[in-house]
């Protein structure tokens, strides 16, 4: 069952961008979090996509997106 909770910022509401098929059957789904832009495939190992076990070092703080610098400022 595909979850729509982002493994990186824990926001809900991920959108489906693509489904991979093999012999007519869906074998995986690519999702994207509209809050932090994390994209993932639901067939990836849990340590990369499951918010319960994913490393906190790579979390994004959905409540403070201002902290991330903007490149190429005039």
């Amino acid at each position: 069952m595909t979850t729509t909770v982002c493994g990186r910022c824990k926001s809900s509401g991920a959108v489906t961008d693509h489904q991979g098929r093999q012999d007519g059957a869906v074998v995986w789904t690519i999702l994207r979090c509209p809050t932090c832009n994390f994209s993932w495939r639901d067939s990836e190992p849990a340590r990369a996509i499951d918010p319960a076990v994913r490393s906190a070092d790579f979390a994004v703080d959905a409540g403070d997106l201002q902290r991330y610098p903007k490149i190429l400022q005039q």
Binding site: I30, W40, A48
Partner: peptide
């Protein structure tokens, strides 16, 4: 595919 496991996307 994800090149390294904590890349932000594809």
């Amino acid at each position: 595919y994800r090149i390294n496991e904590y890349d932000g996307g594809f």
